[in-house]
């Protein structure tokens, strides 16, 4: 192990560090500027340190009100998460066997992932318009979100079931369990850590989704849309404060997801894979 590292290690390491700095630098700037003093503005230097702008996010004022859009995004995210997890587990189960049309469904799912998002937004908008349906965050925007979260959830579940050892289910059936008992008592506990992962991913993707929702959320905006609207007319650090709070919320979800994943993983049987 105490082998001398080649020069390329240090060059690429420096490059990697710059990349991480590029990713996190701007974010940390707005974190700092959220604590700007009351007289401060959108750029450095910091004029004092205060929680003034953070507090301003919670009150109703001329820059708008953010608690309701947050709760709306939260609700929508939870619905999207539930549906994505349920649908992707079902589809993942089906994809363990080849069946006529499985390739078609697979490519349809990939298409949903790579189709330019403006097409999804415009398409759902016109589709609802032509049918005379009302666009709402809980109907059209929900659909738009699912076209984004379901492909990720599905691809992960297919991967999970690829590594799933069918011997557990066979043993369960040999002992006389029904399909539903086998699923509920054997399969589900074994894939639970992955479900947490899929759920966490779906939630954050939905919670932060902007492009596919932008034309189809109806009269009630989700939080990202509200923030986008704010960028054109708000010139105070309240914008950063809101950004900081919503990003911290995303981080909290990721953290909670990772912690639950670890906890479930260590309580699960030592191996649920074929090898």
């Amino acid at each position: 192990m105490p082998q001398k590292r080649p020069l390329s290690f240090y060059i690429l390491g420096a490059f990697f560090s710059l990349f991480v700095l590029f990713l996190y630098g701007p974010m940390s700037a707005i974190f700092l500027l959220s604590f700007q003093g009351e007289e401060g503005n959108l750029t450095f230097p910091m004029r004092g340190f205060s929680f003034y702008w953070i507090q301003s996010v919670f009150g109703e004022q001329r820059i708008g009100e953010f608690v309701t859009p947050f709760l709306r995004s939260l609700t929508l995210g939870l619905i999207v998460t539930l549906l994505s997890v349920a649908f992707s587990v079902m589809a993942g189960m089906a994809f363990r066997r080849k069946f006529t049309g499985s390739r078609f469904i697979f490519y349809l799912t990939i298409t949903s992932l790579i189709v330019p998002s403006i097409l999804v937004s415009l398409g759902i908008g016109i589709f609802f318009n032509v049918l005379g349906w009302d666009v709402q965050w809980y109907s059209s925007a929900l659909g738009g979100h699912l076209t984004w979260t379901l492909p990720f959830a599905f691809l992960i579940m297919v991967g999970v079931f690829n590594r799933f050892n069918p011997a557990y289910e066979e043993a369960s059936r040999d002992l006389g369990a029904s399909d539903f008992q086998t699923f509920g008592q054997i399969v589900l506990p074994l894939i639970a850590p992955s479900l947490i992962g899929v759920g966490m991913l779906s939630f954050t993707l939905s919670y932060d989704e902007f492009n596919r929702t932008s034309l189809i959320s109806g009269e009630n905006n989700t939080l990202p849309l509200e923030i986008f609207g704010m960028t054109t007319n708000v010139t105070s650090p309240a914008l950063y404060a809101l950004g900081t709070l919503t990003t911290l919320f995303s981080f909290a979800i990721i953290g909670a997801g990772l912690a639950t994943f670890q906890a479930l993983k260590s309580s699960a049987p030592p191996s649920n894979s074929k090898n």
């Binding site: 700037a29 932060d208 902007f210 923030i227 960028t231 950004g243 990003t247």
Partner: peptide, 22 residues
């Protein structure tokens, strides 16, 4: 960073690139 809002990540360039930016 992929799990955070695109809009916020765009806004975060203002303190760097703005007229009075870094």
């Amino acid at each position: 960073p992929f799990f955070t809002s695109n809009v916020i990540r765009m806004i975060s360039w203002i303190p760097f690139l703005g007229r009075e930016g870094l």
